[in-house]
Computed example of a mutant assay.
Amino acid sequence: MNAYLHCLSHSPLVGYVDPTPEILAEVEDTIAAARQRIAAFDPELVILFAPDHYNGFFYDIMPPFCIGMAATAIGDFNSAAGELPVPAELAEACARAVIESGVDTAVSYCMQVDHGFAQPLEFLLGGLDKCPVIPVFINGVATPMPNFKRARLLGEAIGRFARGLDKRVLIIGSGGLSHQPPVPQLAGAEAHMRDRLLGSGRQLPENERQLRQQRVISAARAFVEDQNSLHPLNPVWDNQFMDILSEGRLSELDGLSNEELSQLAGKSTHEVKTWMAAFAALSAFGPYQAEGRYYRELPEWITGFGSLSAASQK
């Protein structure tokens, strides 16, 4: 069958530190237009590539990739909470196909996900439970991380699996673009934070979660005032990246190292590997045409905010 794709930046700061009403309306109109295109496509299955922010995946075991057989959203930053409607047998078949193709992935029967998964389902489909979804985690914050080539190969393997289904498949990539919010690092972390990063943060006490969220909100407000308080956004790189995906030149990023990407656009920019995997999955269906492109620097959300659709041509 055919496939449709949408890649979208996410931010936990939506509703907490927003841009001007005019810009917010522009973003909302962009998302509404994407939602209409998706509704017209009428997907029967969603494959969702997204990262995590030390809410579901920790250094007790940190896989580069993980396919969920079941998943629950925790509802951080007021995002939607609850179970995702994962078709377990189909997700299991997907994982087998990916591994048999030569791409190693972990699997989880109790995946815990955060706003990175929940926001695109809310914004693009209207909720977590609107369509069966196979959630695919790509590590975008915890070193060592997969590079662009591995993300591309993962996406191609999942795309070949999806192409063999008799379904209309919506492929979503969630995250990015350039940004570096105050995400903790294991190296140099004090004892309490180290313990959290090693896995105790999976069930974070509510008061501590609120303090964590407030740190991000405060950092965003400071970033609006001084965009050197965090790693600056890089709209040039962001738009070049969107060009590469739109034009199908995916392998051009195979040689870009993780260190180079962090220096260019910030340590959390690695989330864009979800976009790479999504476009690689779409490419398995054959030629595609990009549409609905949008980009704006949004320091209020500490991100270069992008939105991009594409449709397979077969």
Results as ranks from 00 to 15, higher is better:
Tyr4Glu: 06
Tyr4Lys: 12
Leu5Asn: 03
Leu5Pro: 01
Cys7His: 10
Tyr16His: 06
Tyr16Lys: 09
Glu26Arg: 15
Val27Arg: 08
Asp29Ile: 03
Ala33Cys: 14
Ile38Cys: 00
His53Glu: 13
Tyr54Trp: 12
Tyr59Lys: 10
Phe65Thr: 01
Phe65Val: 00
Cys66Ala: 10
Ala73Asp: 02
Gly75Trp: 10
Asp76Ser: 02
Phe77Tyr: 10
Asn78Ile: 00
Asn78Gly: 10
Gly82Lys: 03
Pro87Asp: 09
Pro87Trp: 09
Glu89Ala: 13
Glu92Ala: 14
Ala93Tyr: 03
Arg96Met: 06
Glu100Thr: 02
Asp104Leu: 10
Asp104Tyr: 14
Phe117Ser: 01
Leu121Cys: 02
Gly127Lys: 00
Ala142Pro: 06
Met145Tyr: 13
Asn147Ala: 15
Ala157Thr: 08
Ile171Ala: 05
Ser174Cys: 06
Leu177Asn: 03
Pro181Lys: 02
Glu208Phe: 12
Gln214Pro: 03
Val216Ala: 11
Ala220Tyr: 02
Asn228Glu: 09
Asp238Val: 07
Asn239Phe: 14
Leu245Arg: 10
Ser251Pro: 05
Ser251His: 12
Leu256Gln: 06
Ser257Ala: 11
Glu259Tyr: 04
Glu259Lys: 14
Ser262Tyr: 06
Leu264Met: 01
Leu264Glu: 01
Thr274Gly: 12
Ala277Asn: 05
Ala281Asn: 08
Ala290Lys: 15
Arg296Pro: 15
Glu300Asp: 09
Ile302Met: 06
Thr303Val: 08
Gln313Ser: 09
